[in-house]
Every structure is written in structure tokens, then in C-alpha cells.
């Protein structure tokens, strides 16, 4: 399904590059090189949040709160890595130090200090039972305004459609071109497509991935030593 939708975009927009997305939506192979996908960077909620943090809608960013609780089959490292990159993406800044507490590869709490002075807090866990939708929230607090991807005074993700007939069902469709994919799959296909059509972005993605590798090393070092680690 992911490849089919990717092919649809490649054909429609006449992108001649051959691109093969893996079934889990984590990587794409282009011209013999495998590139990691950073799908959150094309997720519309994050592109809109970044826009508001940079176009003067929300000014004087002070702190960023990022969190996600997912299922036990999602490795904790993957959750931490994603949130670290979301912090980089939304703040437009690199980390200068971080402190991490990790419990049994099930939960992690971090404070990340960015070069811009923004302080990011990250809380992740993979403790949700299978029936539950992953819960996440991202919030930027500025001296003039805040931006958040959740409705005020709510805790769980809202859906676009609630069907109460037979078994209760919910739907959240976010992309007309890629209709039928859920939001995570849409982001994966969009990220793969973005790489297929932009060679410079492919190089940037490899560079971003290398930065994240170093940050993940720092997370492990901090968790193991109980110290703040400079980057």
C-alpha cells in the first residue's frame, strides 16, 4: 500500500527517480542508497507548528514540551529519537546538552537544552495496550503565545469522524491524494516522496540522521552515568 501510494505521487508529479519504501515506512531506497525517513518533518501538524513559531504568530519561544506514549512493540529508542528530532525541527536549533532518565526500556524522560536557549522536555513510554491509539502532545510556549497540536483541556487525540452504529468507529483522514492511509502512513509516503524529488534533502537527511545518532549516544551516556551530557 505504501509503495503503491508512493508510485502514484511519483507518476503524477513526473518524478523520474526510482524509490522503494520499506513496508514499515521507516526507510526509502533511492539509487542504491537507503535513507532513513523522518516522517514527522512532513506531518502537517508539525509543519504548521514550525510555521507559526517562525512567521511571527508565536514569538519568543521559551520551552517546548514533547511527549508520546505508544505500544510495547515500538522500541523506546525509536520514540526518543523521533521526539529529539521534533525538538530540533520545531525550534530550528541544535542541542547543546541533555539529561536523560530511562526506565527498563519502557519509559524515558529528558531535558534538552538547545543552542537558542529554548529548553525542551521529552516524556515517552511504550506502555499502551494494543487497543489504545498512541497518545502524543507537542506544545511550544512563547513570550507571546503558545502553539499546541492538541485541543485545550483535552488529553487524548480527537478524531474527524465518530461513528456510533454497531461497534463504535472513528476515522481521521488527513490527505485527499493519499486517501485511505492513516496519518502515520501518509507522513511516511510524503517523506519518501520528498526525498525522491530532492537530492539536497537526501543529503540533509543523512546529516540529520548522523546528528540524531550522536544525540542517542548522549542519551545512553546520560542514562548510564546519571549526568548531564554536553553535545
Amino acid at each position: 500500500m505504501l509503495q503503491e501510494k508512493l508510485n502514484l505521487l511519483l507518476t503524477k508529479y513526473a518524478v523520474g527517480t526510482a524509490a522503494a519504501i520499506d513496508g514499515s515506512g521507516e526507510t526509502v531506497a533511492i539509487d542504491g542508497t537507503v535513507y532513513p525517513l523522518l516522517p514527522h518533518r512532513v506531518e502537517r501538524r508539525f509543519t504548521e507548528m514550525r510555521k507559526m513559531l517562525t512567521d511571527g504568530t508565536v514569538n519568543g519561544l521559551s520551552a517546548l514540551r514533547a511527549g508520546r506514549v505508544d505500544h510495547p512493540d515500538v522500541p523506546l529508542e525509536k520514540l526518543v529519537r523521533r521526539e529529539l528530532d521534533i525538538c530540533r525541527y520545531l525550534t530550528g536549533s541544535e542541542a547543546v546538552s541533555l539529561t536523560a532518565y530511562v526506565r527498563d526500556n519502557r519509559a524515558a524522560n529528558l531535558i534538552v537544552n538547545m543552542a537558542s536557549g529554548v529548553v525542551c522536555s521529552i516524556e515517552v513510554a511504550n506502555t499502551l495496550p494494543a487497543y489504545a491509539q498512541p497518545v502524543d502532545k507537542h506544545e511550544g510556549i512563547g513570550s507571546q503565545g503558545f502553539v499546541c497540536d492538541k485541543v485545550v483541556d483535552t488529553q487524548a487525540q480527537q478524531s474527524s469522524i465518530y461513528l456510533f452504529a454497531g461497534d463504535a468507529e472513528t476515522y481521521t483522514d488527513v490527505d485527499f491524494e493519499l486517501y485511505g492511509l492513516d496519518a502515520d502512513a501518509v507522513a511516511a509516503v510524503r517523506a519518501a516522496f520528498a526525498l525522491a524529488k530532492d537530492a539536497a534533502l537526501r543529503e540533509q537527511t543523512l546529516a540529520d540522521s548522523a546528528v540524531l545518532d550522536r544525540m542517542m549516544d548522549a542519551v545512553k551516556q546520560s542514562a548510564a552515568t546519571g549526568k548531564n551530557v554536553k553535545l
Binding site: Y101, I111, V119, I141
Partner: peptide, 22 residues
């Protein structure tokens, strides 16, 4: 471990944004 972020009210002389982990 705690860190203070830049104040969102720069004109007060105490911390207004911080986070604590441990």
C-alpha cells in the same frame, strides 16, 4: 535535574519556566 528556560515574562526577576526530571 532541572533546567530553567528563558522567561516568557522578561520583566520579572524570578524564574517563570522550568522543568524537572529525576
Amino acid at each position: 535535574y532541572a533546567s530553567v528556560a528563558p522567561n516568557i515574562r522578561p520583566d520579572i526577576e524570578e524564574e517563570d519556566m522550568l522543568n524537572v526530571i529525576g
